Amino acid sequence: MLRIEKIPVDSIYVPAARRKTLHPETVRILAEDILENGMKVPIQVRPDGARYVLVEGLHRLEAAKWLGETAIDAYLVQARRH
C-alpha cells in the first residue's frame, strides 16, 4: 500500500517534456477547487538523490505552487526513468 508523504514543492523536479503539457487555465480552476475542497488525490513522485522527480500530477503541483503551498501530499513510487 502506498503511503502519503509531505514533500517540499521546491524539491520536486518537473521534466521539460512534462512541463510542455501544462495548461494555465486548468491550473487556475484546480487551484480554486483545492481551496474549496482540499487536495483529493496526491501527486506521484520518485526519489532521485536529494530531489524528487514528478511522475504524475503536474497541474496539482502547479496549483499548489500558485496557492503558495510549500509542501504537497505525494505518493513515493518506483518509476522507470525516461
Rank of each mutant, 00 (worst) to 15 (best):
E5T: 12
R28M: 08
G68D: 12
R3E: 15
E36L: 15
G49L: 05
I29L: 14
I72M: 02
R46K: 15
V45H: 01
K6L: 14
R19S: 05
L67Y: 02
T70V: 03
L2I: 00
E69Y: 14
T26Y: 05
L61Y: 02
L61H: 03
G57L: 00
H82E: 11
L22P: 09
V77F: 06
K40Y: 00
A79N: 03
P47R: 13
G68M: 02
Q78K: 11
K65I: 12
R28N: 06
I43T: 01
G49N: 10
I72A: 00
T70N: 10
R18M: 14
H59K: 04
Y75K: 01
E5M: 11
P8F: 09
L30T: 11
K65R: 15
V55I: 15
K65E: 13
K20W: 04
E36M: 11
V9F: 00
L76C: 07
L35I: 11
A16Q: 14
G49D: 04
D10V: 04
D10Y: 12
A16P: 08
P15K: 01
E69F: 09
I34M: 08
I34S: 04
V77A: 10
H59C: 04
A17L: 11
H59L: 05
E32A: 12
P47S: 12
M1V: 13
M39I: 15
W66Y: 14
Q44G: 03
T21I: 03
T21K: 14
V55E: 02
K65M: 12
R51S: 09
E36Q: 15
R81P: 07
L2K: 04
I43A: 01
A31T: 01
W66N: 01
I4D: 11
L67P: 03
E32M: 07
Q78W: 03
G57E: 06
V77G: 09
I12F: 10
E56F: 01
S11K: 13
H23K: 15
L54C: 07
D33F: 00
I12V: 13
W66E: 13
S11W: 08
H23C: 07
I7L: 03
V53H: 04
L58D: 06
E32K: 11
A50L: 10
I7K: 01
L54R: 09
A64I: 03
P24Y: 05
R28Y: 06
E56G: 08
E62M: 07
L58P: 02
E32Y: 11
Q44V: 03
A79P: 01
R18F: 10
G68P: 07
V41A: 01
R80I: 13
R19E: 14
Y75G: 07
R81D: 14
V77C: 08
A16Y: 08
I29Q: 14
E25K: 15
A50E: 13
A64V: 00
H59Q: 11
V27K: 04
L54T: 00
A64E: 04
V53I: 12
I29D: 13
E62G: 03
V9D: 13
M1D: 10
P42I: 04
L54H: 05
R80Q: 08
R46P: 03
Y75Q: 03
I29P: 01
R60Y: 10
A63S: 12
P47K: 14
V55G: 05
R51F: 11
D48H: 07
I12W: 05
R18I: 15
D48V: 05
A16I: 10
I34Y: 05
D10R: 09
P47F: 00
